[in-house]
Design a protein around this nucleic acid. Sequence first.
DNA 1: ACTGATAATCTCAACATTGAGATAACAGCA
DNA 2: TGCTGTTATCTCAATGTTGAGATTATCAGT
Lengths: 166, 166
Amino acid sequence: MSDAVDALMAQWKQERPDIDVWPMGVIGRISRLSALLGRELKESFAEYGLEPFEFDVLATLRRSGAPYELTAGALLKAAMVTSGAITNRIDRMEAKGLVERVRDGADRRSVRIRLTRRGLELVDEVVGPHVANEERLLAALGPAERDQLAGLLRVLLESMGDTSLT
Amino acid sequence: MSDAVDALMAQWKQERPDIDVWPMGVIGRISRLSALLGRELKESFAEYGLEPFEFDVLATLRRSGAPYELTAGALLKAAMVTSGAITNRIDRMEAKGLVERVRDGADRRSVRIRLTRRGLELVDEVVGPHVANEERLLAALGPAERDQLAGLLRVLLESMGDTSLT
DNA sequence: ACTGATAATCTCAACATTGAGATAACAGCA
DNA sequence: TGCTGTTATCTCAATGTTGAGATTATCAGT
């Protein structure tokens, strides 16, 4: 079998035989998969009235454990977005009643973002179906293949300095 | 060793032991890698005054072979974006002199987008360094690992119906 | 030829992100 | 106490994408 990336690489081989485009076989597939998976997940979140970025924030807070709060800085690192984006996200989610801003007493520069009761209930309701949906999208892989794939991807992430989150 | 996704999964295990979040080990890594790789590639393209999306269009046209032209529809499928996005991209690139619109004689609904001489020269100049840069980003993997990774990713892409391009 | 359905592209408002800069607060040290 | 540098967040204009709808052209069947 072959996918769109195989076709793409065959074209390059034809047009520029002087260049070995093997890296596209990895990077091209990662980026196409990311786009396709993102689309699927978006539909799934929409059933709960959530945008993917909203789930991302809710999940980051939820998995950090009680009292379910993190600084804006911790959130933007976890989400890999800029400070402007996090401010915007929190604004919307606060308006929606999913999180609240709590000024820190010790360091008044920072803001702690805390899950509201409603945000907590929502994320706890959504995370199960979300993982089940992810499982469905990966059903083409057997158990050994999943582990192998996860391991290879981790090698790359580590080589690019991807560590910690909170 | 461990990466950010290992940390994330450990937190979930702590907070929601009832859910096995193994799919995040694959999907989370694909999406983080896509973001990190995208950043790196963007810097590289910037050295040639190109945005990533511009290279994407140039490369799609270049690898399609002489006369280096495709319809707007073919381009949007290859880039996995909506029609509005492609119209916008072509507008900008046409203004920059990288591509030109050619009305099709046979089907006057469609527009063929063609590389200009300048666009062709630019993409032929950039593609070599671009692939070399991608190679650098994948240096953490050995030859056998690359093939293995590409193969596993292909299984997923095929299962999601990713085929053809032009 | 006509009519309705389909197809290809463009238009445009809404939206989320970036990136640079502003603001406010903390930390170390003379 | 007063400086200087750093840190945390917010602000805002510019940018690119989406998604729905408009426009124009083709095709199939009658």
